[in-house]
Write a protein that binds this DNA or RNA. Structure first.
Lengths: 125, 125
DNA sequence: GGCTGTCGTTTACAGGCGTAAACATGCGCC
DNA sequence: GGCGCATGTTTACGCCTGTAAACGACAGCC
């Protein structure tokens, strides 16, 4: 199990998940203004991500181009599973129930979930 | 926004959510063995929870009885919302879709979700 | 009325995180 | 061939967390 990705690190990963490989400069350009981060901050985060083996760096002349090693799929699955395990006994239905009770399901959510479930139902899959 | 509850602190909260008020001793008795924590650890966690106003303490003779101030519902909602916002654009359906794609929905989940959705559908509410 | 055990409060300390400055290095230009 | 700029690497520092030990207060026993 690789070391956990922190919140600030995830922000950098999101950039790389959208498009990779990218240089540190490009990453800074995208994430810096939005998060109010300076160059040094992004560099540190990239280094920590390298140490955690969540990204790789390929030399490109004088600089490096970074790419994710950890996929967003995998990350999202792990995070979600963690929360589900901790708070909902590991299952999805109780989470849906919780949001349902709290009136946090939008119409869009509802119809989309209905469609998903229907798909699974008659779904061979 | 009150300070965030950490993972170890949540473990203590879970005990209090199950039953409260409780003395530190009772809390230790329940959580200590399971987590391998000593007395000092639980005391520190209780103090941090007090400072974060997540629990309250009512004097009972020589000791205190602790009770949650933060409800589990609220905590769960905040945590879930945080994850949904960070990873699924704030909506529930994409999470369900994600688990569905990853084949992580049990039959039980599926039928329960179908029921919940049906309820909402014909449900006035 | 001290001694001891029982609680709660304070302090500790290492490791992670957010945020960056300082430092090192090497290519490209004058 | 030295200087400066662009990049990456190292170091910093305060706060939070996990995990406790040390300390303090007080009630009850002898």
């Amino acid at each position: 199990m690789p070391a956990p990705i922190s919140e600030a690190e995830r922000e950098v990963m999101e950039v790389l998940w959208r498009r990779a490989p990218r240089s540190a400069e490009e990453i800074l350009a995208e994430v810096g203004p939005r998060q109010g981060w300076q160059e040094g901050t992004v560099k540190s985060l990239l280094n920590r991500l390298l140490r955690k083996r969540a990204v790789k760096a390929a030399r490109d002349g004088r600089r490096y181009l970074y790419s994710p090693l950890l996929s967003r799929e995998r990350y999202v699955l792990e995070e979600s599973k963690g929360l589900l395990d901790r708070l909902f006994g590991g299952r999805v239905a109780p989470l849906v129930a919780h949001f349902s009770e709290q009136h946090k399901l939008s119409k869009k959510d509802i119809s989309e979930i209905r469609r998903l479930i229907a798909e699974l139902d008659d779904g061979h899959d």
